[in-house]
Amino acid sequence: MKKLNYFSLSVVVLLFLGCGSDKEEEEVTPTKPVEAASFTAADVDTAYDAFNTHFYNPEAKLYYSTTAKTGLGAIWTQAIYWDIAMDAYNRTKEASQLTMVNDMYQGGFQEYDGYNWNNTREWFIYDDMMWWIISLARAHGITGNQVYLDKSKEGFENVWSRSYDPVNGGMFWNFAKDGKNACINYPTVIAAMELYNITKDEQYLDKAKNIYAWSRANLFSNGRIADNINVARGNVGWSDYTYNQGTAIGAAVMLYKATGTESYLNDAKMAADYTRQKMSDAKGILPAEGDWNEQGVLKAIFGRYIMMLIKDAGQTQYLPWIQDNIALAWKNRDKTRDLTFRDYRVPAPAGTIQSYEASSVVGMMQVTPPTK
């Protein structure tokens, strides 16, 4: 029953979500910051605790899809929630949080056939796999557990051998190989760089440069990241999604840090500027992605990588923008449950909501300095 429900949800999402649509987004240029709002270190703790109270399943060691707690969230979003748990540990250094990081590995192991990358029922698109491969590498960096690194390396080689196009370049996003999407190409660069930073094996750096160059030539236009290329029709889908902008930023920053090549940093700043100036509203508020689907998690991914640009590359000019988004969303939280919502501009609903749409602000909070 678990697989039937998940598959049905995923089919709907894959038809609607970023990996596939060609619809253009309306472009809006911001004019001024949002009204004064703030969030504190205590608020960060409160938001994370509330998210876990209403969504974490301690038996499955993974997250429910909604506050109704009737089923687990989609496979790829669990990797994003694991990233948030790791960020919470990096922020707090609490032993209990490290335990949760290790528990979530075990939860994924139990739920997804021991991370068997050849199981084409559990894994049916390559980007689902790559999100976990990134998280496994990060988990090794935090815990030192060799098993996590081995699983990440095995997964990377598996996806590379099946998804990479040696003739025309780039990574296919699904097993049918009918599209090359941002959601697999830029995360492949990030995964390769995570593994390179751990192992110093030059093959990972070479692969990261290879896929980044293809993505730059085919999916990048003055900071705007195309969602996909339809291989059969040959057309580019210029839909705007925050996670694509975020992974492009993260990939560029990681390559910049490793090589010192200024063009990577310039690309990251262009992608950040496009997100702020064209995708955000007139007050700089990020778009409300995720109308009852997995898109609600996208801004959690964007938040992680824009903060990498701010912290790791010293581009602090973007920090007030991100803090303003968090502060407004926190101000509009459901104050009874302390749950935030995907649309930061409106009060969070009091009824059943998804972990997807409640996750992005929580994720951003773990990596963003409080305003107070």
Rank of each mutant, 00 (worst) to 15 (best):
S135N: 11
G141L: 07
D201H: 04
L136A: 09
A182H: 02
I184W: 03
Y112W: 15
S161M: 01
N181Q: 11
F172L: 03
Y115L: 09
F124A: 13
Y164P: 05
M171V: 12
T120C: 06
E157F: 03
Y164A: 11
N119S: 15
D127W: 06
W160G: 03
P166D: 09
W131R: 03
L195C: 05
N185L: 04
S161G: 03
V189T: 08
I142H: 02
A137F: 06
N185D: 15
I133K: 05
L149R: 00
K180N: 10
D150K: 06
E194Q: 14
R162H: 14
N116D: 15
W132I: 06
I184A: 04
P187K: 00
N145C: 00
Y112D: 07
F175A: 12
F156T: 00
P166Y: 08
V167T: 12
I125R: 06
L136R: 05
G170M: 08
R121L: 15
A137S: 15
L136I: 08
W123L: 12
W123I: 09
N174R: 08
D127P: 11
R162G: 00
M193G: 08
A176V: 12
A176C: 04
A176Y: 09
D113W: 02
S163P: 14
G114C: 13
T120F: 10
V189S: 05
W173N: 12
Y148W: 01
D178Y: 02
P187Q: 03
T188R: 02
N181T: 12
G144I: 10
I184T: 15
K180P: 13
N118Y: 10
W132V: 07
L195F: 03
C183T: 10
K177F: 02
S152G: 14
K153F: 00
Q146K: 11
I190K: 01
K200Y: 12
E154Y: 01
N181H: 14
Y196C: 11
A137P: 00
D127A: 09
C183I: 10
G169N: 01
